[in-house]
Nucleic acid binder design. Sequence first.
DNA 1: CAGAATCCAACCGGATACTG
DNA 2: CAGTATCCGGTTGGATTCTG
Lengths: 127, 127
Amino acid sequence: MTHARHTDVRETIGEDHPTCQLRDILDRVGDKWSVLVMNLLGSGPKRYSELQRSIEGISQRMLTLTLRSLERDGLVERTVTPTSPPRVDYALTPVGQTLSVQVSGLIAWAEQHREYVAASRLRYDAP
Amino acid sequence: MTHARHTDVRETIGEDHPTCQLRDILDRVGDKWSVLVMNLLGSGPKRYSELQRSIEGISQRMLTLTLRSLERDGLVERTVTPTSPPRVDYALTPVGQTLSVQVSGLIAWAEQHREYVAASRLRYDAP
DNA sequence: CAGAATCCAACCGGATACTG
DNA sequence: CAGTATCCGGTTGGATTCTG
């Protein structure tokens, strides 16, 4: 399983300090593409190829890995229509939709504060 | 500047497709510790050592890099009291607080759905 | 069309040692 | 106390090639 390391649950390092388990879940949002995929699926089911076209710069490999990982976590459902060529649709599960609400908030924040952050960085890097 | 690569703004790859700039901002939440630090600061200013004790497993290096990066983005403010030994406090800026609201939502989600996700993974990994 | 497999560079972050 | 500097292994993810 090539992508084992990608989907591997990081052990909670022995102790069950809440922080560790938190990190585990937050990694879901932390990887490079999950948030973008979830956001797109938030507006309805999409085909594999639609996702690929919509997400600027994602590789086939990463799209597949990201979708598998979301599916594994019960956030995305995969539906195969065995025509030829095959058609595969991805949709959020009910729980996935509750996460996509959070994700939308995050994206909205990012859009609203993009300029502020950019300006802050410029000032910080000036000297 | 050792942590240049950590704070480097990923270029928006030429075109100004919204996705690229989005990724740039989302990386703020994507790294390993920022969300945890912001969440702690959400309940009020903290000293460097308090943060380090509160965040299970963070190294000195990563705490410093994370704080610098948040400061650079205008989300956290650093205040030095030049006593001996020195005392340094970190607090969210007004904009930082608006992000911490989103972060709280994310963390709440993670806590509410931890078991669901864990169960999904078990089922997925079974065969 | 929707992937799986392999290869490999870049990067992230931990451990350690040193400082004002 | 609150950092900085250096070294270095593991992981992430892009490019490419092949398939049902």
